[in-house]
Write a protein that binds this DNA or RNA. Structure first.
Lengths: 129, 129
DNA sequence: TTGACTGTATTATAGAACTAATACAGTTGG
DNA sequence: CCAACTGTATTAGTTCTATAATACAGTCAA
């Protein structure tokens, strides 16, 4: 059963999109594997304190992207191949790194300074965990 | 007069927020300076192909953050001190770098690999420009 | 088998983002 | 001066996000 213990929804981004990202990033990291069961719509919505329809929207999109399979009456299950994971990895990395490099460039930050800042934040977060 | 030639609105984020970011990043980069005139609401909305009310919303927020001053009948003008710029710089950097390090960590990307990827994308974008 | 849990669907409501049309009052340049 | 441009305000309608309350049919374990 996939755990949502580390899922902390943020303001500003639709919750259903954050659920999508959580699953995709977990698949890329290897913490979510093919065949893993997802919590039911109702259970997860209660756990996160959100509406079941919001979870359903996220799961429906995962189904459309063929990352999970659902069957009326039974729990949804992850269905990911190594090929899909590699594609996810490339898509997510490109999207994320494009946005950060673009933002830093618009602020006139040099590559060297960017590395220094990232290094600093990386350590801060490591000490938090 | 502040130029919006390099402003390319993206899908997924509210346009008025993107206008806010464009101005703030320009101030941090030094390409937008104290006293600079902004295009009028109507002119900018026509230029960007969006609704005047969307521009008005962005400018109104800039006014609330005391980064511009507006006066009925006259063009809005940037009003930024070195102190405000430093604060903007810290806020924007913290926000951006936090999000990227969090995303990479959730994907199981190591700091070394992150640096390699950023280096790669940085060069790609430089060759584009 | 059967009752509790599943996925799925429908309808209604509310707020935010964005567009649209209009109006009014203040400024500024020719 | 005054016409054209400015900021500001109001009202209305659409789409998206999220909530809420149900309803129905399929599954699965006791």
């Amino acid at each position: 059963m996939i755990s949502f213990d580390t899922f902390k929804p943020t303001e500003g981004t639709p919750i259903y999109q954050q659920i999508l990202l959580f699953i995709k990033r977990g698949a890329v990291a290897g913490t979510i594997r093919d065949g893993d069961e997802l919590p039911s719509r109702r259970v997860l919505s209660a756990l996160l304190g959100i509406n079941p329809n919001t979870v359903q929207k996220a799961f429906h999109l995962l189904e459309e992207e063929e990352l999970i399979v659902s069957q009326a009456g039974a729990k949804s299950v992850m269905k990911i191949t190594e090929e899909k994971i590699q594609k996810l990895r490339e898509d997510l990395l490109r999207e994320n790194i494009r946005s950060i490099t673009g933002a830093l460039r618009q602020m006139g930050i040099s590559r060297e300074e960017a590395f220094k800042l990232i290094d600093q934040f990386w350590e801060e977060e490591e000490t938090e965990a």
